[in-house]
Simulated scan of single mutants.
Amino acid sequence: MAAPLKQLEATGTVVIADTADFGDIARFQPSEGTTNPTLLFLAAQLSSYSALVDKAIIYARSLPATASTEDRLSAAVDALAVQFGTQIYQLTGRVSTEVDVSLSFDTPGTVAAALRILELYAAEGVARDRVRIKISATWEGIEAARILQRDHGVSCLVTVVFGLAQAVAAAEAGADAIAPYVGRIADWGKLNGSAEEDLGIKTVSRIQNHLRKYGFRTQVMAASFRNVQQVRQLAGVDLLTAAPAILEAVERETKPITAILTADLAKAASDSELPPLTFNGNEAAFRWAFNSDACAVEKSADAMRRFYADTVKLKQLLATKL
């Protein structure tokens, strides 16, 4: 019998290691890797990655003399993300890198930041088509993804997704992928009356089935797993990114892992099971649908605050070297 992770991949799920540790990435041999402010902050504190930090500082110092300290720190963060991302790319063949979360409500700013990140990757020899740009699932972020995909041919991963409205809007915008946070949705559910069922599984299953039923090409990258059972219940999701501890736990499983989510089951679902939902660029309709979902509102804001806090800590760490 195939190893558990191979069984998971056999369901059609592409497995991604949610880590910036090169050793873990090499061990699990995922087909894609990712960075975010939290992973970068943790990794940047390790002496084994000091050379990458030094390169980011050198880049920040090379900016024109008119550049402010804040501009240099922001540039250092982007450069560090690309330094890590380049190493991840060499191990996996594809990498996703996050735009500064403070730009989540700034469409032009997000587009400009994404293009700068791609220029940094190009300087490292990483082709544009091997990079995904991660953008928060705000209305402004989704519009930035639309512009990047349509006008610049940039692959976008819309992240911080906690509800169907965000997923549908991102899919309508043509985003290549979205990342709903299974574990964080489940956590919210436990605190708000969903103790009998895993709200994360329910929500992400609904998102995946909805996009498949209505013919969207956008892939679902399930993220933020708390346990192996969540992985099992989402077997068949397009993409799955999990921390090394979760992937190790999957590898210890003795019961077969079989597909739960399939395109055939999604397409066979009735309209009453998966009602149609469209926005067609209507911002007001999106905002109403989004704000009608308490979990999406609360957890999206919480996730962006957390990423921003880690970005600030990362800048403080880099400032000591700059």
Rank of each mutant, 00 (worst) to 15 (best):
L118I: 13
Q7V: 13
Q219S: 11
K190H: 11
T34F: 00
L118K: 06
I207F: 00
F279S: 02
F279W: 07
A269C: 14
R27D: 12
D21Q: 01
A303G: 05
R232L: 14
Q233T: 04
E32W: 03
T69I: 07
Q83K: 03
L120K: 09
K213T: 11
S48M: 11
Q230D: 09
Y49C: 02
G109V: 13
L40D: 04
A175K: 10
V53W: 03
S205W: 00
L247P: 07
E283S: 06
D293T: 08
K313R: 15
V53Y: 04
L317D: 05
Y89H: 12
D264P: 01
A245E: 13
E283W: 02
I88F: 04
F105P: 00
S31H: 10
V204I: 12
E98S: 10
L314K: 06
R287H: 00
A195T: 15
E119A: 14
A285N: 01
R232D: 11
S62G: 12
G189W: 02
Q230I: 11
L247S: 02
I133D: 02
V182S: 01
V111D: 04
T218I: 12
P275T: 12
T35A: 07
A263K: 14
F84R: 06
V237L: 09
D293W: 03
P276D: 03
M221Y: 03
N227K: 09
T13Y: 04
F225K: 14
L314I: 08
Y121P: 02
A114I: 08
E253I: 09
D54N: 14
Q166M: 12
E196D: 15
E172D: 07
A60N: 03
L120H: 12
G183L: 02
D198S: 09
L314G: 06
C295T: 09
A56M: 03
S292H: 05
A44H: 08
R184D: 12
E197N: 13
M304D: 10
A17N: 11
V220T: 15
E98D: 10
L8K: 08
R150N: 09
K267C: 12
D293M: 06
P276F: 02
V312G: 02
V126M: 04
N192L: 07
G183P: 00
L39R: 03
T218P: 09
Q83I: 00
V204G: 04
L318H: 13
V312I: 14
L91N: 10
K6R: 11
A167R: 14
A3E: 14
Q166I: 12
L261R: 01
P180I: 11
Y181C: 13
K321V: 10
D198N: 14
T92R: 08
V312R: 09
I16G: 05
W288S: 13
R217W: 00
A112C: 04
A195E: 14
S50N: 05
L164P: 11
A75H: 13
E119Y: 03
R184P: 08
E298F: 05
I25T: 08
R252V: 11
L73Y: 01
D310W: 01
Q166T: 13
G141T: 07
V131S: 11
R130A: 15
E253V: 13
G236Q: 03
Q149E: 13
T138Q: 05
F105I: 02
I88S: 05
H210T: 15
